[in-house]
């Protein structure tokens, strides 16, 4: 399916007129998200599978945003994404938080996670072993909690 069809899929009602899809509205919504999230695509008609991994991920993010939820849960949002796109996903998440939205990020890429979240809850074997402010937490500390000796003691 095209970028446009994907972006509007979650909330088809918002692009409908008299119960039928308005393709013009759909394009407008999709183009707005392509600009806001700087999705690199030749057009909103391009099939999503032809996009790079990072841009596919941003399309997913756009889908989640159309739901206009106050809480977003992102699972591995930067997995398989190049460095540039990672930075943009960081920026988008920061923007959302700045707008007052709650964003919960689940990630195994701990080094990357520390770059853009406020609070880190470390899990080990399904139990919480740490709850810290990201700015005061180092990669080494977090690693120690999740797989090292510190977490085993907790």
């Amino acid at each position: 399916m095209s970028v446009a069809a994907n972006v509007t899929l979650v909330d088809l009602g918002s692009v409908c007129r008299f119960g039928l899809l308005s393709l013009a509205r759909e394009r407008a919504v999709a183009e707005r998200f392509v600009n806001e999230l700087s999705i690199t695509t030749s057009s909103v008609d391009t099939p999503v599978r032809n996009l790079s991994g990072g841009n596919q991920q941003k399309v997913l993010l756009a889908k989640a945003l159309t739901a206009e939820a106050s809480l977003l849960v992102l699972e591995e949002p930067t997995q398989g994404v190049d460095v540039h796109a990672k930075a943009e996903i960081h920026r988008i998440v920061r923007d959302l938080a700045a707008q007052g939205k709650g964003v919960m990020v689940i990630s195994s890429d701990v080094r990357d996670l520390l770059l853009f979240v406020d609070r880190v809850i470390a899990l080990r074997a399904g139990r919480i072993v740490g709850d810290t402010v990201a700015a005061d937490t180092s990669y080494a500390q977090l690693l120690d909690l999740t797989v090292g000796a510190a977490g085993a003691a907790a």
């Binding site: 399916m1 032809n50 991994g53 997913l60 398989g80």
Partner: peptide, 15 residues
């Protein structure tokens, strides 16, 4: 559909 994160290597840009 855009379900698979991390298919970057196989993806081809339309342009």
């Amino acid at each position: 559909m855009s379900s698979e994160p991390g298919t970057g290597a196989a993806a081809v840009d339309e342009r």
